[in-house]
Amino acid sequence: MLGQVIASGLAMGCIYALVALGYAYVWNTMAIVNFAAGEFLTFAAYIFVATFTMSLGLPFWSSLLLTAAAMAALGALFSRLVFARLQRQRALVAIIATVGFGIFLKEMARIIYGPEPLLYVSPFGDDMLDFGGFRLSVQQLLIMVVVVVVMAAQYFVLRYSMIGKIMRATALDRETAALMGIPVNAVLAGTFAFSAVLAALAGILLAPLFYVTTEMGSLVGLKGFVAMIIGGFGSVPGAIVGGVLLGVIENVGAFAISSTYKDAIAFTMLLVFLVVRPEGLIPERSADRA
């Protein structure tokens, strides 16, 4: 059964990694942490399930694309309206403002979609695949595949395309990038939109596993942030490793130590890392500039 526990932890860890990746991108280009990321996830799940799938009756793929587009638009809008103004502020101001926006988003989801949890059945079914001993649901496998694909895609785009170069240039020195003709504001909005799409993906992947509720994203958002700290603040490979590690360790911890204190285990792990290895597992060179 331990294999089972690890496999489930791995799937959750992949979700944390997606969210953590969103944090890392935004941190790298804007040096702000978006504490509303979990609520972006919640909101995306609602749009996907309630609006596109249930109300409009669209098939899975078009719902997915439309949700991604809607969240990208919301992300870009939020970035221009709110985030851009937080640039020169102290970290404190940005934290409180994004927490406030998260509450707003969560409450809006409740006002628009009502208090009932929404059930979403994955089009891929909830069959179990037997891998000689332990079982993995199709959905869990899908999560892992999607996360691996996203990780690979973002790596190659960032490494080899012009978009990647532009983003890295903006991250390194915004003023110089602007002087070189890079549309800095568009890049920042684009980065934020990308992180919103990552949250949307996480929400869509989680919808069949969880029920869609207004609370579904809050804890995932926090754990994603913990994952980024463990992996290394702003470090892209760190976010992935940290996410997966957190997912596995908290599940194994709940199994081996205490299920009652499962969340406490995740947060204690955070404290240990902050004291013993504050720069994270795979530190980004320009770590916390706050």
Partner: peptide
């Protein structure tokens, strides 16, 4: 532990207190 770290640590301590 400063800034963002402190925010998440204090949040975590609140949840641990509840548990």
């Amino acid at each position: 532990i400063k800034g963002h770290y402190l925010a998440i640590v204090t949040l975590a301590l609140n949840e641990i207190f509840r548990i």
